[in-house]
Design a protein around this nucleic acid. Structure first.
Lengths: 250, 250
DNA sequence: AGGAGTTGTAATATAATTTAAAAAAAATCA
DNA sequence: TGATTTTTTTTAAATTATATTACAACTCCT
């Protein structure tokens, strides 16, 4: 099967770990259930001090902090964590409190979710933040400069606007399609396994039991939209036994 | 984060002084931190009367006023200041209260910023207002409304007059539509969930469970009025799984 | 009260994504 | 080589999410 992840994340190939800090047991329980269901390791804390302690002990990949907690509030925890770490942080704020939101972002939180929220929404934020966080590491690791507009052959990719053109005709890509293309193009010439792609584009932990064929399907659709002859791809290449890669750009 | 930076101010001479009047300590603290970081001198006040006192004593180059303050509200302070001075004034208003905004501008404020705002946004307004103030050779002593116009693509948004133009044709938006647009535009590039939008734009109490699909409907109506091709929106974008956002401006 | 305009709800349509599975291609090996 | 196995590609169906529409309820003006 697919070999170990070549792309180092902080835990090697372990699941990504999320620290959930909220004093409401019901919220902890729900989030723990839902997030572990889609493949994350969850650790929890019921107050601010515990959150800091657990953070230091467990070194999670992402932290979800409720603002209102006993002992130390979310900001305190955020500040404390930021003294030593750039780990992504999502803040849970109470209803529409402006100052809370500003404070949170000011202190270096990566995102915030306003209560009451649906678990689905938090899931989406978690993936989004993790995707941003992990994608940030990709470009530097290859030593490539990630340009805003990339041109190769008759394909033009505007990463800032998330738009793609072929022969100056705008091609509509869906969000997933674009994210996938973006990963491959930003690291052209480098092959990624399906698991790595799932991890980076979908922000799923390495061993999440999602069908890795999703990647194939998306690759197929991308080819049908981008390639001159989808049956003989010249841009999105198959690395048999490994995964996929984008034709090297220079 | 980017700490301690000695960015020279526009004059190169003495630092420009800004008075910040807001009863929320957290907002005062944040704005003080951020604005002094980029080279302004900051003085603060926690209520209306203090604001007037500090203004008379410190003679700042710009005043940022929260509308809602104890002792004397923002308008009172604005009126009071305008009796003796043309100093630029920025008003902080709650979202969606039209009359507040109009009143503020009538009273001679130079600009307003709608809560919730990001510190970055206020920084931009501060710079903009100061630039106008220092550049105006023949200052209209009335301190009449300085337009705050956002332009992107072929649409122009005049937030002061709550008017929107496409290709210089006026487009009629309803109040809700404009408020929604305003939230998204004022925070372009940032995705908001339906819940957040409901809380910010509709400002319903937490128990008033309204169908989140209302947001979809209004987004749809906005698109049909604003977008060149409503089926392929380029301004009001869908953040699948999360909500909506306005195409990042700048 | 009457009419024009606005808003929320619900029903329906469309689109994006995942799953499943069959067909095709490439690799393995006796 | 040819049969077998593995891997990839493609298609279709199922699932989930978003978009649109029509209408009823409501508001604001006179």
């Amino acid at each position: 099967m697919c070999p170990n992840s070549e792309i180092p994340n902080e835990q090697g190939e372990a699941k990504q770990k999320i620290l959930i800090a909220d004093d409401e047991a019901s919220i902890r329980r729900i989030l723990e259930t839902r997030l572990s269901m889609i493949g994350y390791d969850i650790v929890t804390a019921a107050d601010g001090e515990e959150a800091v302690a657990v953070f230091n002990k467990e070194n999670p990949d992402l932290v979800v902090l409720d603002v209102m907690m006993p002992k130390m509030d979310g900001y305190g925890v955020c500040r404390e964590i930021r003294r030593t770490s750039d780990v992504p942080i999502i803040i849970l704020t109470a209803l529409g409190d402006v100052s809370e939101r500003i404070t949170g972002l000011e202190l270096g939180a990566d995102d915030y979710v306003v209560k009451p929220f649906s678990p689905k929404e938090l899931e989406a934020r978690v993936k989004s933040v993790l995707r941003r966080a992990t994608n940030r590491e990709i470009a530097p690791s290859t030593g490539k400069v990630t340009k805003n507009v990339i041109t190769t052959g008759n394909i033009k990719i505007d990463t800032a606007r998330r738009q793609v053109f072929r022969k100056n005709e705008r091609i509509r890509l869906t969000g997933m399609e674009f994210s996938l293309l973006e990963l491959l193009v930003n690291n052209s010439g480098q092959a990624y396994s399906r698991n790595e792609i799932l991890q980076y584009v979908w922000a799923y932990p390495p061993d999440h039991r999602i069908d890795t064929r999703v990647v194939d399907v998306h690759i197929s659709r991308l080819r049908s939209k981008l390639e001159t002859d989808p049956a003989n791809p010249e841009l999105i290449l198959t690395a048999r036994g490994i995964g996929y890669m984008f034709q090297r750009i220079n």
